[in-house]
Amino acid sequence: MRALLIRDLRLAMRAGGGFGLALSFFLLVAVLVPLGVGPEARVLALIAPGILWIGALLACLLSLDRIFALDFEDGSLDLLVTAPMPLEGVVSIKALAHWLVTGLPLTLLAPVLGVLLHLPGPGYGWLVVSLLVGTPALSVIGTFGAALTVGLRRGGLLMSLLVLPLYVPTLIFGAEVVKRGALGFDTTTPLLLLAGITLGAAALLPFASAAAVRINLR
């Protein structure tokens, strides 16, 4: 298990694309939105929580197809399925590796982009907290989407169609935490609900993901 995590992280580092692409994409979203919406600080401050969460979500989505596609193409996935570890564990590790190379860096970059979008002062802490709590759910749910479409041609577009509706609750609660935090309101309820989704998804979805991988390899 640990060997798999180390291997996936090492592969992400060496391939380069891992960190860089998702982060650049996130930056681009934060730059393009003011260009489209206009420079008025009041408007930007109002939409900043939502834009930052959507940007993080889309950046996360961008790299999902790499979770299984490369291992599927070079035959590693076959070998991992026949290896002496539970496939549920394998998909969980893959989700964890994905989070470490996308979700976590996105969380760390988000406050910087908050400045670009005039996020109100109290919002920064909640932005980091909500992304830290919520992005693991994005990786776990995304791993499920990747597992459903592994081996399909044109799987990327289909995967977005499958994964984005599943992201709805995470997005709503995550953005709500930042919105409330930025206005100085109590964030306990949405934060707990967000944590609930992350924990529930991490506990249950690997079974569905592993089932989908097995079905796709048949």
Partner: peptide, 13 residues
């Protein structure tokens, strides 16, 4: 121990 057509080799390792 199964070995299929593809070797499961990671090019960057």
């Amino acid at each position: 121990a199964y070995a299929g057509h593809a070797d499961g080799i990671k090019p960057t390792l």
